[in-house]
């Protein structure tokens, strides 16, 4: 491997690693819904109608929100730090976590030291350095038991049907297939897109293995040149062999296998076994001769 290849490999590895480290982190978490005036909605673990904040993990891996900060004060990002090391702060992929804002933080890791204001306000989550903003939302005064959350299209809006730990618009959601049916009734767009993707993937593979083949041929020639002690340009690549031989072998095997069957044709052929005489397989030759006893007269 020359220097250039090594550098390229290192760069590729680092790029992939950087992608991997960025993926599925707390930065992907989103505030999904909040209820700032709870009189009849669900109760917390202490039986109180506390205000709550719903966090959504849109990634394909579990994300731990422990160590992050939740605040209702734009000037104080570190208002409440969610304790680390607790299993309940982990949010599985595409799942929701409810944080109770009851202003009593000793109730547990998921109870903040502030309440959401029913008259409207600000809410944000910050990463564990207390400086990097993950998500924020400003909300206006809400009626009792009406939540404020993200709609299916990503915009914020009020919800009379409150959905803690659930999608905000489950009743309004259409399946991907239904949506696609409306947007692309004749299937032209999806066909072109899908064919493009299929071609792109295989073109990428083609380019990749074309380069690999060049590299392999070059290396083989180099090795052959070294072994023969001649210039690399004078070496003929020995990798090309006629396909006829392979095809003939493959066909012969195919024909042979086709002949093998387990259905007998009900004809028994008994062939005479020919034994070629040889002193080596003659029993007589292997026996010790019976000594002849001669009697002297």
């Amino acid at each position: 491997m020359n220097k250039k290849t090594k550098k390229g490999f290192l760069l590729l590895t680092l790029t992939l690693l950087s992608f991997a480290s960025y993926a599925q982190t707390t930065f992907d978490l989103r505030i999904n819904e909040l209820l700032s005036h709870n009189t009849e909605n669900i109760v917390d673990d202490y039986g109180e109608h506390s205000t709550w904040i719903e966090i959504y993990n849109p990634t394909y891996g579990t994300v731990d929100i422990g160590g992050c900060y939740v605040t209702d004060d734009i000037n104080n990002p570190k208002k409440y730090r969610i304790p680390q090391g607790d299993v309940i702060t982990k949010i599985p992929s595409h799942q929701y976590l409810l944080i109770w804002a009851d202003s009593i933080d000793y109730h547990g890791p998921l109870y903040t030291n502030f309440k959401l204001s029913a008259d409207g306000g600000y809410l944000a989550i910050y990463s564990n350095d207390g400086k990097t903003l993950i998500d924020q939302v400003r909300y206006s005064a809400l009626e009792a038991n009406v939540s404020y959350g993200r709609k299916d299209d990503g915009e914020w809006g009020k919800f009379e049907k409150v959905t803690p730990r659930l999608q905000n618009e489950p009743y309004a959601l259409e399946s991907a297939s239904e949506k696609l049916g409306k947007r692309d009734p004749h299937g032209a767009v999806i066909s072109v897109t899908a064919m493009t993707v299929v071609f792109s993937v295989l073109i990428l593979l083609f380019l990749c293995f074309k380069q690999l083949a060049k590299f392999h041929i070059k290396t083989s020639k180099k090795k052959a040149a070294e072994a023969q002690g001649v210039d690399i340009d004078k070496v003929q690549y020995a990798g090309e062999e006629t396909g006829d031989i392979y095809a003939a072998i493959a066909l012969a095997l195919k024909l042979y296998q086709d002949d093998i069957h387990d259905i007998e044709d009900m004809v028994i052929t008994i062939e005479r076994e020919d034994k070629i005489y040889s002193p080596w397989n003659s029993k007589v030759q292997t026996l010790r001769q019976t000594p002849v006893i001669r009697k002297n007269k």
Partner: peptide, 9 residues
């Protein structure tokens, strides 16, 4: 490797 493209077509 160009045979790959036939698989796509």
């Amino acid at each position: 490797p160009k045979l790959l493209l036939i698989g796509a077509a």
